[in-house]
């Protein structure tokens, strides 16, 4: 019953995938412990990188640069 209440907070219209209670719990844990901190840490690192590279932040597809470690 409790689980049904939780699921009702999700978009139920198209929710055909079982998210798993454990996965939901872990995300909530992440959210309260580390999520925001990690987000700002990443932002700071990005700003630092941009300054070092003297480049402007653009919303490009940079996936190809992230695949290989060369």
């Amino acid at each position: 019953m409790n689980y049904i209440i939780l699921i009702s907070t999700l978009n139920t219209g198209m929710a055909y995938l079982d998210p798993g209670s454990g996965s939901l719990f872990l995300q909530l844990l992440f959210s309260s412990l580390a999520g925001v901190g990690f987000y700002f840490w990443t932002k700071l690192r990005k700003i630092k990188n941009n300054i070092q590279n003297n480049s402007t932040a653009i919303e490009e597809d940079d996936i190809d640069d992230d695949i290989f470690d060369e």
Binding site: S31, G35, V36
Partner: peptide
């Protein structure tokens, strides 16, 4: 509990 959008981006 809720998961904020910022935390979502963090994840």
């Amino acid at each position: 509990k809720e998961m904020s959008k910022q935390a979502h981006f963090g994840l």
